[in-house]
Design a protein around this nucleic acid. Structure first.
Lengths: 188, 188
DNA sequence: TCGATGTGATTGAATGACCAACCAAGATTG
DNA sequence: CAATCTTGGTTGGTCATTCAATCACATCGA
C-alpha cells in the first residue's frame, strides 16, 4: 500500500513540526522520524512547503464542523473551547504557517484558502441566525471576520500564555456576539 | 554618536525583515542594507533573536495609545483601523514573530510581554467603560482577551487577504463590544 | 509455469549553497 | 593610551534538493 508510506511521513512530519517548529525542522529529521530515507520525502512531496501544507490538511480534516442556527452558534463556541484545549499541536502549526505565509507564496496560497473556508463556516452560521430572526443579513460578513478573527486571536493567546483563560475569553465573545443580535430588547 | 549606528541597524533590519521575512533574512543582508560590516551587528545585538525583538520594540514604541472611557473605546477602534492600513510592515513582523515565538524561548518571552501589555491597555479601557456605567467590572478581563484577540485576528486576515475589508470587521467588532455593555435597554 | 520486462517506490550519497556566531586586528574617540 | 567601535574573513555546521542506482512486484508472452 503506497499511501501507507505517505501517511507515515505526514504523521512523522506533524510530530517533528509540533515538537521543533517549522524553522528547526529539517527533511532529514522528518525522514528519520518516519524511518525512511531522506529522498523518499521529496519523492512524495515536491517541496518542504507542499509537505507542510499537506500536514496541515492532514491534521485538520477531522475538525470539520456542521451546526445550524442559534443553538448551533453556541455549540460552535463550545467546540472552539474544546479545540483550543485539545489540539494544541495543530493550532501551533497553523499559527506558525500563518507567519510564514506572509512571505512564502506557496504557503500563502494554501493558508489563504484555509482561512476563507473557516471564516465562511462562521459566516454561514451568522446568516442562519439572522434568518431565524428575520433580520437583515448584511452584517454577517463583517461579524464573521470579527468572530473568526477573535477565535484565532484567542487561540494565539492561549498558545503563547499557558495561563491565559481561553474559556473566559470565548464566553465573553459569545456574549458579545449574541447581544449584537438583540440590538434592543423588544419585550418588557 | 554610537546609538546612531544602532538605530541605523535597527531600521535596516526592519526594512529587510519586512521585505524578505524572518526566515529569508540573514545578518549579512541586514549589515549590507545598513552599510556596515557583518560583525558589527553581532557587536550591538548578541543574537539574531535579540535583534528582531529590538526591531519590534523600535517600530512599535511610537504606537502607544492613551484614551479614556467609552468615547476612548470608539477612538481606539478607529485607531486600529488606521494602524491596519498604515503599519502593514510592523504588523507583518509582529505576526511572524508570534509564529516563531511558539518554539523559541527568547522570542517567546519578548512576545509574551508585548501581548500582555497591549491586552492590558484594552482591559483598562473596558474597566473605564464599566466604571462610567457603574457596572460590575468582572467581565473586563474576558472581554479584553476577546477584543484584543479579535483585533489581532483581523490584522492577520487583512495581511493574508489584501481584499479583506478590515474596516467592516472592526466596525462589527465595535458594535458587538458596545451592545455588550447595554445588556438590557432600560429606557423605553 | 517461468522468465522477461516495465514501473513506481525507495535508497543514500553528493551537490551547491547558506548562515549565525566568533575572532583577531585595525580605526576612532575621549 | 585605553575603551569603545568597526572591520571582514573564518569556522563549523546546516539545509533543501537532485540524482543514479536498487528494489519489489505485477503484468505478460511463450
Amino acid at each position: 500500500m503506497p499511501s501507507d508510506t505517505r501517511e507515515k511521513i505526514l504523521q512523522a512530519a506533524f510530530d517533528v513540526l509540533s515538537r521543533e517548529g517549522y524553522e528547526n525542522t529539517s527533511i532529514k529529521q522528518i525522514a528519520e522520524q518516519a524511518g525512511v530515507a531522506q529522498g523518499l520525502v521529496h519523492y512524495h512531496f515536491k517541496s518542504k512547503q507542499r509537505l507542510v501544507l499537506a500536514v496541515l490538511q492532514f491534521v485538520c480534516q477531522k475538525l470539520e464542523i456542521g451546526v445550524e442556527g442559534e443553538a448551533g452558534a453556541m455549540a460552535a463556541f463550545e467546540d472552539s473551547k474544546q479545540k483550543i484545549k485539545e489540539d494544541r499541536g495543530s493550532n501551533a502549526l497553523y499559527v506558525q504557517l500563518i507567519g510564514i505565509a506572509l512571505h512564502d507564496p506557496e504557503i500563502g496560497a494554501g493558508i489563504r484558502d484555509f482561512i476563507r473556508e473557516q471564516r465562511g463556516n462562521v459566516e454561514d452560521i451568522a446568516r442562519q441566525v439572522f434568518a431565524e430572526r428575520e433580520m437583515d443579513p448584511t452584517p454577517a460578513r463583517g461579524i464573521a471576520g470579527a468572530v473568526w478573527g477573535a477565535v484565532l486571536g484567542i487561540i494565539i493567546q492561549s498558545l503563547i500564555e499557558p495561563e491565559f483563560s481561553a474559556d473566559e475569553a470565548i464566553d465573553a465573545l459569545a456574549a458579545m456576539s449574541l447581544s449584537a443580535v438583540y440590538p434592543i430588547n423588544q419585550g418588557a
